[in-house]
Amino acid sequence: ENVVSAPMPGKVLRVLVRVGDRVRVGQGLLVLEAMKMENEIPSPRDGVVKRILVKEGEIVDTGQPLIELG
């Protein structure tokens, strides 16, 4: 699984990683606000951040690609 998608609609509050960062399974990639709750979106696997597909403040839909892992 190379693309991390939004599990719910919401607003991207914070991106916690940068392109080139090594991440571990379960590590927070970004914080999504949904229904006034902050939800940290975890990495599904170990890898390297290849691309960040959203910006802070952006509104996303369920299933929208957020981050690509390499």
Score class of each variant (00 low, 15 high):
residue 26 G to Q: 13
residue 12 V to W: 14
residue 15 V to S: 01
residue 4 V to M: 04
residue 49 V to H: 14
residue 30 L to E: 14
residue 32 L to D: 15
residue 17 V to G: 09
residue 3 V to D: 01
residue 53 L to V: 11
residue 5 S to N: 03
residue 57 G to S: 05
residue 55 K to D: 05
residue 64 Q to Y: 05
residue 67 I to C: 15
residue 31 V to G: 11
residue 68 E to D: 10
residue 57 G to C: 14
residue 29 L to K: 15
residue 11 K to W: 00
residue 55 K to M: 12
residue 47 G to I: 09
residue 2 N to L: 09
residue 28 G to F: 01
residue 45 R to I: 04
residue 3 V to F: 10
residue 10 G to K: 11
residue 14 R to H: 08
residue 56 E to G: 02
residue 15 V to G: 05
residue 1 E to I: 15
residue 58 E to Y: 13
residue 45 R to Q: 11
residue 15 V to L: 04
residue 67 I to V: 08
residue 5 S to G: 06
residue 20 G to F: 14
residue 40 E to Y: 11
residue 55 K to L: 01
residue 58 E to C: 14
residue 2 N to A: 08
residue 35 M to R: 07
residue 46 D to W: 13
residue 11 K to T: 01
residue 59 I to V: 00
residue 15 V to F: 04
residue 54 V to R: 04
residue 40 E to W: 12
residue 51 R to Q: 00
residue 47 G to R: 13
residue 65 P to W: 08
residue 61 D to I: 03
residue 49 V to G: 12
residue 44 P to T: 01
residue 57 G to V: 08
residue 24 R to I: 07
residue 66 L to M: 08
residue 53 L to Y: 04
residue 3 V to Y: 13
residue 36 K to M: 00
residue 57 G to Y: 03
residue 41 I to C: 15
residue 70 G to F: 08
residue 29 L to S: 06
residue 41 I to F: 05
residue 12 V to H: 08
residue 2 N to Q: 11
residue 10 G to W: 09
residue 61 D to A: 06
residue 40 E to T: 10
residue 36 K to Q: 04
residue 68 E to H: 15
residue 56 E to P: 07
residue 70 G to V: 06
residue 7 P to K: 04
residue 32 L to Q: 12
residue 35 M to W: 00
residue 37 M to Y: 06
residue 4 V to L: 05
residue 31 V to H: 02
residue 42 P to D: 06
residue 50 K to H: 04
residue 62 T to G: 01
residue 10 G to T: 03
residue 36 K to P: 10
residue 30 L to S: 13
residue 7 P to H: 00
residue 60 V to M: 06
residue 28 G to L: 03
residue 37 M to N: 13
residue 2 N to I: 12
residue 63 G to S: 12
residue 39 N to W: 01
residue 13 L to R: 09
residue 42 P to E: 12
residue 7 P to G: 11
residue 54 V to H: 11
residue 25 V to C: 14
residue 65 P to G: 01
residue 66 L to Q: 09
residue 45 R to Y: 00
residue 57 G to P: 06
residue 22 R to P: 05
residue 6 A to Y: 04
residue 27 Q to F: 10
residue 52 I to K: 00
residue 31 V to I: 07
residue 32 L to V: 08
residue 23 V to R: 07
residue 63 G to I: 00
residue 29 L to M: 09
residue 24 R to Q: 12
residue 18 R to F: 11
residue 61 D to Q: 07
residue 16 L to Q: 09
residue 29 L to H: 13
residue 26 G to S: 06
residue 17 V to D: 12
residue 57 G to F: 10
residue 23 V to M: 00
residue 31 V to E: 03
residue 44 P to H: 11
residue 49 V to K: 15
residue 39 N to A: 12
residue 9 P to D: 10
residue 38 E to L: 00
residue 10 G to V: 02
residue 67 I to M: 04
residue 50 K to R: 04
residue 69 L to E: 04
residue 52 I to F: 02
residue 25 V to H: 01
residue 5 S to V: 01
residue 12 V to P: 15
residue 15 V to N: 13
residue 48 V to E: 06
residue 49 V to N: 03
residue 38 E to T: 05
residue 21 D to A: 07
residue 5 S to T: 00
residue 34 A to V: 01
residue 4 V to K: 10
residue 23 V to N: 06
residue 44 P to E: 01
residue 34 A to D: 09
residue 60 V to F: 02
residue 58 E to V: 11
residue 54 V to S: 06
residue 53 L to F: 11
residue 43 S to F: 06
residue 10 G to D: 05
residue 54 V to A: 01
residue 34 A to N: 02
residue 29 L to Y: 13
residue 8 M to I: 02
residue 25 V to E: 12
residue 37 M to R: 09
residue 34 A to E: 12
residue 51 R to S: 01
residue 54 V to W: 02
residue 56 E to T: 02
residue 3 V to T: 00
residue 68 E to Q: 14
residue 17 V to M: 04
residue 52 I to V: 00
residue 52 I to R: 03
residue 11 K to H: 03
residue 37 M to V: 09
residue 24 R to E: 10
residue 23 V to H: 08
residue 53 L to M: 07
residue 30 L to M: 00
residue 58 E to D: 11
residue 37 M to G: 05
residue 39 N to C: 14
residue 6 A to S: 13
residue 15 V to H: 12
residue 33 E to C: 14
residue 48 V to Q: 09
residue 41 I to K: 06
residue 19 V to I: 01
residue 69 L to I: 12
residue 28 G to D: 08
residue 2 N to Y: 11
residue 8 M to V: 02
residue 62 T to F: 01
residue 6 A to H: 05
residue 58 E to F: 09
residue 66 L to R: 15
residue 19 V to W: 07
residue 52 I to T: 11
residue 4 V to N: 10
residue 51 R to A: 03
residue 44 P to R: 05
residue 43 S to E: 15
residue 23 V to W: 12
residue 9 P to K: 05
residue 51 R to V: 10
residue 11 K to Y: 01
residue 17 V to R: 09
residue 37 M to A: 10
residue 24 R to W: 08
residue 25 V to I: 10
residue 51 R to N: 04
residue 13 L to M: 12
residue 35 M to D: 13
residue 13 L to F: 04
residue 59 I to Q: 01
residue 50 K to Q: 09
residue 6 A to K: 12
residue 51 R to F: 00
residue 9 P to M: 11
residue 49 V to D: 15
residue 11 K to R: 05
residue 41 I to S: 07
